[in-house]
């Protein structure tokens, strides 16, 4: 960010972008004076300015990714207040697509490919392959959303996450106590749940995490 000499000016210029990104994730109109979500988005944007370099592709894509991940982390920390859900976007964001040139897209794809490679290695430690996840991922939206909230709760609990990484198995009973879900439910979606927990709890998969269209509702 050498070109931009005045950081404050740049942030003020990009306030509409920050607002749009944040309100899109929160699915409601936000107010600069009252809503924590906008402050978190602003901090994430500031962090994006700090950490951005040319290897990270388009700046706005990068900033959007950071804002999205920060907000998901915020929702995760306040999981009692928010219910998260996946959204299937019908309209492709043409404006955003056009603003990216092929070079930037390629860079983004490369970063994502590296993350996917790491993610696949991590899954293999649990004996899971992507092909297994096709059968193990729920096709029903409600089930997916239910599992997303279970995964959010688990990723907040360090004990369970550590136990999961150590034993390479889901501590189902502890999860049932934490989430008050049935053992059978957790057991049947075990593989999908592990993949979600890894994505949500590990910062090294931020591009994959930001790709997921997670929104917050009360």
């Amino acid at each position: 960010m050498d070109i931009i000499s005045n950081r404050d000016e740049f942030i003020i210029e990009n306030k509409p972008f920050i607002y749009k990104t944040a309100s899109n994730i929160c699915k409601r109109n936000l107010q600069w004076e009252n809503d924590d979500e906008l402050s978190i988005a602003l901090i994430a944007f500031n962090k994006a300015i700090d950490t951005y370099n040319n290897e990270k592709g388009n700046f706005y894509s990068y900033a959007k990714m950071l804002i999205k991940n920060s907000l998901i982390d915020y929702f995760r920390n306040n999981s009692s207040k928010y219910t998260l859900y996946f959204i299937d976007e019908q309209i492709i964001d043409i404006q955003n697509k056009n603003s990216l040139n092929q070079f930037e897209i390629d860079i983004e794809n490369k970063i994502r490919a590296q993350e996917i490679y790491d993610f696949s290695r991590r899954l293999k430690e649990f004996g899971i392959e992507f092909k297994d996840l096709i059968k193990s991922s729920p096709s029903h939206k409600d089930t997916r959303n239910e599992l997303l909230n279970v995964a959010i709760k688990i990723s907040m609990n360090e004990d369970i996450v550590n136990l999961l990484y150590k034993s390479k198995q889901l501590p189902i009973k502890k999860i049932c106590l934490l989430t008050s879900k049935k053992e059978k439910f957790i057991e049947s979606w075990r593989r999908y749940l592990i993949s979600l927990i890894i994505i949500l709890s590990d910062d090294s998969f931020k591009y994959i995490k930001s790709y997921l269209n997670i929104k917050a509702g009360d």
């Binding site: 996946f86 959204i87 299937d88 976007e89 794809n109 490369k110 970063i111 994502r112 490919a113 590296q114 993350e115 996917i116 490679y117 993610f119 696949s120 992507f130 092909k131 996840l133 096709i134 193990s136 991922s137 729920p138 096709s139 939206k141 997916r144 997303l148 999908y192 979600l196 994959i208 790709y211 997921l212 269209n213 997670i214």
Partner: peptide, 30 residues
């Protein structure tokens, strides 16, 4: 997420892993 020349595994925005068949050349991460 995965591509073997004919079949690919996609992770959708809505968190679903789906299998597709395509004749197009794909690369992981795109």
């Amino acid at each position: 997420m995965d591509y073997d020349g004919k079949n690919a595994v996609l992770l959708t925005e809505s968190g679903e892993f789906i299998s597709i068949k395509t004749k197009e050349k794909l690369s992981v991460g795109q």
